[in-house]
C-alpha cells in the first residue's frame, strides 16, 4: 500500500513540467525514505535524478519498496488537471497496475481522482560516483535560464569556464559569437539573488545548449541553481526543492577528438 499526500501539490506539477520533455518513460521508486526517480533522456546524453524526501509529505505511507513505471507525458496530462493550490495524493495498492492521483481543493469542496495505467519499463540504473568538483557556481535560476535562452539564439553549444574572474558562458554560431561573464556578487538584498563561485581549479567545459534549455524548465522549482563542474566529468545542474529534496540534471560534456 502506497499513500503520499503532498499539501503543496504544485511542486509535483512543476517537477513534471521540468522533466517531461527530457524523459518519456520512467520508473518512480518509492521507499520508506522518499519518492525518487532516475532516468536518462532517449539519446543517453543526460540523466535526471529526482528526490522528494518522506518528511516533505504531510502523510507518507510506503509499506514496501515499489517501482512504478509511468509515461511522463500522460502523468503530466493528469497533473495538469490539478489546481495550483490543490493537495495531491498518490495512491497505489500492492500489485496494482494503476496509480491514482487524488486532487483536493484547499477548502475541500472539490475532490477528484484520476487513475493512470502503469507500464513496465526496462530502465538502467546508473551509479553516480561522489566527485570532488573543481568549481561550484550558485546563481539565480532565472538568470541561468535567461543566459541559456539568449545563447541558444546564437549557437548550439555553450562553453562554461570558471576562473578567478568569474563564470563565463560563451557560444559561437554562423552569425557571430557571444560571451556572458557573471562575477561573484554577494552584496544583494536577498540571498537567492547572489552569485557565489567556489573554485578549486579553473575549469572549462563544452555542452549542448539544447539540454541546458531543457534543464532550465525546472526554474519554477527554485530561486537558485547550482552548477558543479569538473574537467572531463558530466556537469550537475541542481535545483533544490525546498524542505523536500532536489532535481539534478547530469549532462555529458562534449569532448574534442
Amino acid at each position: 500500500m502506497l499513500e503520499l499526500r503532498l499539501v503543496q501539490g504544485s511542486l509535483l506539477k512543476k517537477v513534471l513540467e521540468a522533466i517531461k520533455d527530457l524523459v518519456n518513460d520512467a520508473n518512480f521508486d518509492c521507499s520508506a525514505t522518499g519518492f525518487s526517480l532516475q532516468a536518462m533522456d532517449s539519446s543517453h546524453v543526460a540523466l535526471v535524478a529526482l528526490l522528494l524526501r518522506n518528511e516533505g509529505f504531510e502523510h507518507y505511507r510506503c509499506d514496501r519498496n515499489i517501482s512504478m513505471g509511468m509515461n511522463l507525458g500522460n502523468m503530466n496530462k493528469m497533473l495538469k488537471c490539478a489546481g495550483n493550490d490543490d493537495i495531491i495524493t498518490l495512491k497505489a495498492d500492492d500489485g496494482s497496475d494503476t496509480v491514482t492521483f487524488m486532487f483536493e481543493s484547499p477548502n475541500q469542496d472539490k475532490i477528484a481522482d484520476f487513475e493512470m495505467k502503469l507500464m513496465d519499463i526496462d530502465s538502467e540504473h546508473l551509479g553516480i560516483p561522489e566527485a570532488e568538483y573543481h568549481a561550484i557556481v550558485r546563481m539565480p535560476s532565472a538568470e541561468f535560464a535567461r543566459i541559456c535562452k539568449d545563447l541558444s539564439s546564437i549557437g548550439d553549444t555553450v562553453v562554461i569556464s570558471v576562473t578567478k574572474e568569474g563564470v563565463k558562458f560563451s557560444t559561437k554560431g554562423d552569425i557571430g559569437t557571444a560571451n556572458i561573464v557573471c562575477r561573484q556578487n554577494t552584496t544583494v538584498d536577498k540571498p537567492e539573488e547572489a552569485t557565489v563561485i567556489e573554485m578549486k581549479e579553473p575549469v572549462s567545459l563544452t555542452f549542448a545548449l539544447r539540454y541546458m534549455n531543457s534543464f532550465a524548465k525546472a526554474t519554477p522549482l527554485s530561486h537558485t541553481v547550482t552548477i558543479s563542474l569538473s574537467s572531463e566529468l558530466p556537469v550537475v545542474v541542481e535545483y533544490k526543492i525546498e524542505d523536500m529534496g532536489y532535481v539534478r540534471f547530469y549532462l555529458a560534456p562534449k569532448i574534442e577528438e
Binding site: 546524453v45 546508473l126 569532448i255
Partner: peptide, 14 residues
C-alpha cells in the same frame, strides 16, 4: 568539432 559522448561513458550501470 567536439563529439558528444553518452552519459554512460562516465557513470557505470548498477
Amino acid at each position: 568539432g567536439p563529439k558528444q559522448p553518452a552519459i554512460t561513458k562516465f557513470f557505470s550501470k548498477l
